[in-house]
């Protein structure tokens, strides 16, 4: 098993796609850090001028529409602060800034690890190289396990490249904008990094397992696309509370990423009451994903073990 895993890792690092993705992930993180840099930059005189202009405009609109009072039904909840400085933006902390950047590219990063895993395995079937491998190691389940573990390690490398680059670029940008004394982060940042890493690992394993089972990169991509799209459409078509929401892969994905996902719709209390109809918790999403991945692995191993290799 050790020898097989070493061989699969050598195969993985020999693929140009891994290097390309590592570079792209660093680039994506750098781009995110640059795009969001404005939110972390200190308040300037220009910011204060812009805020005062915004305040004046808002106040004028309010007076024109509501006559300077918020009592009538149309203007309920529309209030304009008396202090124009309330309109001046508050520069985000290092933790918040980094969270923006990580969240910004995490979907692309998750797509990248899925592509890496599916193509790492699928390419062996497409080229027929899987036959050659099986002529050396005829026991299929250990071969599959080695491939999935290698793909997972590749996914971890890509994830680490993205998250590490995001942290590094954010730190450098923040230091240059605000200096070290403001550089603080709460627990939310490490929690987000952990969630992204766990989700990335699960997606990599799932993509590799499906690719071994179906023996094709495009079919694996198709299955993922159909499942996610179908899940989104089904989720949108459910207007009220439904236990099904907690089983939809798209909702699980969002929960895994954000820590908690609120499904909006008509609440259970009343058909006229639109709001948070359901909350999907992280614990549930994680348990569901782990069990789902285990089932997928077992099904793929069973199928791959019985499959006729004809290429």
């Amino acid at each position: 098993m050790n020898a097989l895993l070493k061989a699969e890792l050598l195969r993985l690092v020999s693929r140009r796609l891994l290097l390309v993705l590592l570079v792209c992930m660093a680039g994506l993180a750098a781009f995110g850090a640059a795009v969001d840099a404005g939110s972390a930059s200190p308040v300037t005189a220009q910011d204060i001028r812009t805020a005062r202009e915004d305040w004046k405009l808002e106040k004028a609109n309010w007076e024109e529409s509501c006559g300077g009072v918020s009592q009538n039904a149309e203007c309920q909840g529309w209030e304009v602060a008396s202090d124009p400085d309330a309109y001046v933006r508050t520069p985000v902390s290092f933790g918040e800034y980094t969270q923006y950047v990580v969240s910004f590219g995490s979907t692309i990063m998750l797509l990248a690890v899925a592509v890496l895993a599916a193509s790492f395995v699928g390419a062996e079937f497409a080229s027929g190289n899987i036959s050659t491998q099986l002529l050396f190691t005829p026991r299929r389940v250990p071969l599959m396990v080695a491939k999935v573990v290698a793909a997972a390690l590749g996914g971890i490398a890509v994830t680490a490249a993205y998250l590490g680059s995001a942290l590094a670029f954010c730190a450098l940008t923040f230091l240059s904008l605000r200096g070290a004394h403001d550089m603080t982060a709460g627990i939310d940042l490490p929690l987000l990094l952990g969630r992204v890493a766990v989700l990335s690992l699960l997606i990599t394993v799932m993509a590799a397992a499906v690719a071994v089972g179906v023996g094709s990169t495009p079919i694996t991509a198709g299955i993922f696309a159909v499942v996610l799209l179908g899940s989104v459409i089904l989720g949108d078509s459910i207007s009220g509370f439904s236990a099904l929401q907690g089983f939809l892969p798209s909702n699980i994905l969002l929960t895994m990423l954000s820590g908690q996902y609120e499904v909006y719709g008509y609440t259970a209390r009343s058909v006229d009451d639109w709001g948070v109809a359901q909350v999907i918790n992280y614990d549930w999403a994680l348990g569901y994903s782990v069990v789902g991945t285990a089932i997928l692995l077992a099904a793929s191993a069973w199928w791959f073990g019985r499959q006729d290799i004809l290429r």
Binding site: R15, S127, N129, T132, F136, T137
Partner: peptide, 29 residues
């Protein structure tokens, strides 16, 4: 299997890898 070598139909290896790397992977496995 360690006493049996085989080529079935056309030779199948990873197309983007060198001849040496293809064999290294098999040897390592």
């Amino acid at each position: 299997i360690s006493y049996v070598g085989a080529i079935v139909e056309s030779p199948k290896f990873a197309p983007s890898m060198t001849l040496r790397r293809n064999l290294e992977i098999l040897a390592m496995s």
